[in-house]
Design a binder for these strands. Structure first.
Length: 492
RNA sequence: CGAGAAGUAGCGCAGUUGGUAGCGCACUACGUUCGGGACGUAGGGGUCGCGUGUUCGAGUCACGUCUUCUCGACCA
């Protein structure tokens, strides 16, 4: 199986699609816009899932599950919310099929029409707030800190594996609070959880910021986000956390008796990350040889490839490998011995590189004589020979080193592609090169819209941690006064 | 839904003025190989998206139809 990845520099888009398929992560399904996540891809998602879930629990959250179907009337209770999602909803109208009276196959039974159509959730705010209404009567019931792992459906016109699919896996946190401050704190806490996850586990530098009004989640008062930069200079929204104010509480009439005896509406947040993170991970680190996985999310940390001519040689090498594997596993690493005799070692090297395994160990007859192993790093594509007795410690240390090196590389790329821009001429020129443009903006939706029309660039966020530039200046487009720079970029 | 392009083997494609259905990769068998995606020989695999028409004869021409992709609009 020759699985050559196309060149990243030639056509980034094609390179990405090709990589996702060739590295056995996912493929297009027979259902339009939907994706099959293959076992290897799912193993990576599982790692992300488990770590995120741990972090949610650490911040006091619990998991629950709410229905897939949302009565149409629920969705329309919050005006902005329904407007934001109406155009991409899958709707269930019937509950039965019948044999076709006019030919082969089955048809929808017209007599089985639902009295009220059900929307397949594009997000669960409405069904959840309809439920919370029954859970909340007193301040003693608050806060509610629930998360759900689920699939959602958004009938997008154009789809791309992991980045935008008609159905995707995600988690959505939905919390209810007694005060505005507490809810705002929660929204900010969770965006920071996401940022920490991206940086420490995905080795992905992200900017934490707030969305402009036009980019805000439908029904939110404030949307916090983490924005990442891909290797083609385009921005990718990797996660969001919304301060929903009392919008949903009012729409679903969720009130509670406060300590002071007043009857108040509940304050809400919602936050989510999806399988899009997989897309971010792939796009941010991979090279022309394939995936580059950060050790903390790699399903396999170390792969061992024997190099042999005869069966006896192989048996001796495998024995050695089994012993080494045990030692590495004792250090918490996942190890695979690729003992296939159907493909050659060179093929295995290429294949495991394609799959992004951080460290590869090769042992051949020469090593058997010298008591050495060959250790290859995926991130730098370098190899070194080392005495087998000291290699375990080295490999354990390598995991951290690789994790950090990948982050440093991505951070360095982002730094190189982030520029301050002060004139409209320069803006139009720089945006073609990709990257983040730090610009003054007059704060109006009109200007934002005009810039988008003319350059396809949008405000990715008003940064809160990295690139905070609170300084006086003039809007890059209108020339009106501005107090801080924001990040403009073309985005996925 | 608007504009463009494409549907031929599992994948990627070629197929000239209409005249025997092809190539590369992958697959199967055997042999030689084996420290970076091996090589040789021999094989298997097709209703050329679907339908109608023109023709002695259609992958090729005409009309219809379906699907997919790219660019818009929409979006995590």
């Amino acid at each position: 199986m020759a699985k050559e990845v196309t060149n990243r520099e030639d056509n980034y888009s094609q390179w990405y699609n090709n990589l996702v398929v060739k590295a056995d992560l996912a493929e297009q399904s027979a259902v339009r816009g939907c994706m099959v996540i293959k076992p290897y891809g799912y193993a990576i998602w599982e790692k992300m899932h488990d770590q995120l879930d741990r972090m949610f629990k650490e911040t006091g959250h619990v998991n629950a599950y709410f229905p897939l179907f949302i009565p149409k009337s629920f969705l329309s209770k919050e005006a902005e919310h329904v407007e934001g999602f109406a155009k991409e909803c899958a709707v269930v109208t019937h509950h039965r099929l019948m044999t076709n009276p006019n030919g082969p196959g089955v048809v929808v039974d017209p007599s089985a029409r639902l009295e009220e159509e059900l929307v397949v959730r594009p997000t669960s705010e409405t069904i959840i707030w309809n439920t919370y209404k029954n859970w909340i009567t007193s301040y003693r019931d608050l806060p509610i800190l629930c998360n759900q792992w689920a699939n959602v459906v958004r009938w997008e016109m154009r789809t791309r594996l992991f980045l935008r699919t008609a159905e995707f896996l995600w988690q959505e946190g939905h919390t209810a609070h007694a005060t505005r401050e507490e809810a705002m704190e929660e929204a900010s806490r969770m965006i920071n959880v996401y940022a920490k996850f991206a940086r420490e586990y995905m080795s992905l530098p992200v900017v934490v910021g707030t969305k402009s009004e036009t980019e805000r989640f439908a029904g939110a008062l404030d949307t916090l986000c983490i924005e990442a930069m891909m290797q083609d200079g385009k921005a990718l929204q990797a996660g969001t956390s919304h301060f929903l104010g009392q919008n949903f509480a009012k729409a679903f009439d969720v009130k509670f008796s406060s300590k002071e005896g007043t009857l108040d509406y509940v304050w809400a947040t919602s936050w989510g990350v999806s399988t899009r993170l997989m897309g971010a991970l792939i796009m941010a680190h991979s090279d022309n040889n394939g995936l580059v996985l950060p050790p903390k999310l790699a399903p396999i940390h170390v792969v061992m490839v024997p190099i042999f001519k005869t069966a006896e040689e192989n048996a001796a090498i495998i024995e050695k490998m089994e012993a080494l594997k045990k030692e590495l596993e004792a250090k918490g690493l996942t190890v695979k011995i690729d003992n296939r005799d159907t493909v050659r070692s060179g093929f295995k090297f290429a294949e495991w590189e394609l799959k992004g395994v951080p460290v590869r160990i090769a042992i051949g007859p020469r090593d058997m004589q010298n008591g050495t192993v060959e250790i290859a790093r995926r991130d730098t594509l370098t190899k070194e020979s080392m005495n087998i007795d000291v290699c375990v410690e080295h490999i354990v240390a390598l995991m951290d080193e690789i994790q950090q090196n990948i982050y440093a590389k991505a951070l360095d790329y982002r730094a190189r592609k982030t520029v301050k821009v002060d004139t409209w001429e320069e803006f139009k020129q720089k945006i073609e090169e990709g990257g983040f443009l730090l610009c003054h903006w007059d704060g109006t939706a009109e200007t934002e819209e005009k810039i988008k029309e003319e350059t396809k660039a949008t405000i990715r966020c008003i940064p809160m941690d990295s690139f905070v530039c609170e300084e006086e200046g003039r809007c890059v487009y209108s020339g009106k006064p501005s107090k801080r720079r924001v990040i403009f970029a073309r985005a996925y």
